[in-house]
């Protein structure tokens, strides 16, 4: 049954997905959820496909009201979650009754939270993605009174079912600290920095307040380019670390301009881009060198955890009759056993 989510306090929130992967070919950044693991986990916990449109809420308090009974999941930064005034858990499916308010307050461990709704929400699409693009002025930024269409209603689920310890079956929730270690591989232009490249690994950097979805700016000792030859514009990957000024290191994130003319010193791994997505101004970052095969292995290990979660959630949902007609109980190991 169609319903809607009425935004009461938007804070800083958008509807997004995993990104516009065909965008770079046309000069558009990939954009999409900055913390990809948390976004995927939220959709999986809500019984959706990983790439379904969901809400990304950055830094500020957020409130919305549901017009029908729905099922949601909230992941990302630690925060205080209430539904109809009741305190609820993050990283678990949560029932919301028609008329109840969902409030996310005190987003303070990291920076970004994700709210997925079972059946997802309606959002306009550009090149196969609903991810906002601030440069072309595309996307759904939420304001007070915005009504987001929802597609599936789920009757309230009795809480005892969700006292099952779903997450002991595999999902390691990300940790949120004010100091973070970020894995990087050597960039294609590392040689241009000579011996100063090693400063990247011996320096503790501080996240600047001028950081955003395009890139994080980090203060600290800076590697210096040794050559002054002109660099032709070229495609730069998400995660590229550049030294464009004498003040700060620039780490490009998913909103980055697709081409640039600065040498790429190092590239943050896919897995550690999620860590940077949650870094707040003032947080400390240190970089650790890894290799592409190791980075790929870590990324795949995280995807396997999400697959385990998906199968657990699928089992529980089918027992509860969520996401389709209720079938006979399946012979699957009981959660937690």
């Amino acid at each position: 049954m169609n319903g809607s989510l009425v935004i009461q306090q938007p804070g800083n929130s958008v509807v997004t997905d995993l990104g516009r992967f065909r965008g770079p070919r046309f000069g558009l950044p990939v954009n999409g959820a900055l913390d990809q693991f948390s976004a995927r986990a939220a959709n999986i916990l809500a019984g959706n496909a990983d790439n379904s449109p969901l809400l990304e809420i950055t830094a500020l308090d957020f409130r919305m009201r549901a017009t029908t009974d729905i099922l949601i999941a909230v992941t990302g930064t630690p925060l205080h979650l209430t539904v109809g005034g009741r305190e609820c858990q993050q990283w678990e499916p949560v029932s919301v009754r028609a008329g109840e308010t969902v409030a996310l307050r005190r987003l303070d461990g990291g920076l970004r939270a994700y709210v997925a709704v079972h059946g997802s929400v309606h959002a306009p699409v550009l090149l196969g993605s609903c991810a906002p693009d601030t440069v072309v002025g595309f996307g759904l930024r939420l304001t007070e009174g915005t009504e987001l269409r929802t597609f599936k209603s789920v009757p309230p689920i009795r809480q005892p079912y969700f006292d099952l310890p779903l997450f002991r079956l595999g999902l390691t929730r990300p940790e949120f600290h004010s100091t973070a270690v970020v894995d990087v591989t050597d960039g294609p232009d590392v040689d241009e920095f000579g011996g100063t490249a090693d400063l990247l690994y011996s320096t503790e950097y501080t996240v600047s307040g001028r950081s955003n979805h395009i890139g994080l700016r980090l203060g600290g000792a800076l590697p210096e380019r040794q050559s002054t030859a002109e660099v032709l514009s070229r495609g730069v990957p998400v995660g590229a670390i550049e030294v464009p000024s004498r003040e700060e290191l620039l780490v490009l994130h998913r909103g980055r301009g697709v081409t640039a003319g600065y040498p790429v010193l190092a590239v943050v791994t896919s897995r550690s881009l999620d860590v940077l997505a949650q870094a707040r101004p003032g947080h400390k970052i240190t970089f650790r060198k890894t290799t592409v095969p190791e980075a790929t292995a870590k990324h795949r290990a995280a995807l396997r955890e999400l697959e385990t979660l998906r199968s657990t959630v699928g089992t529980v949902f089918s027992l509860l009759g969520v996401g389709g007609p209720p079938g006979p109980p399946r012979l699957a190991p009981a959660a937690g056993s």
């Binding site: 992967f21 770079p24 032709l232 070229r234 495609g235």
Partner: peptide, 16 residues
Amino acid sequence: HGAVPTYDSLLVEFDP
């Protein structure tokens, strides 16, 4: 995912 060609270089992006 796709390729971004410029002057003398090409960035090929993929899903690891």
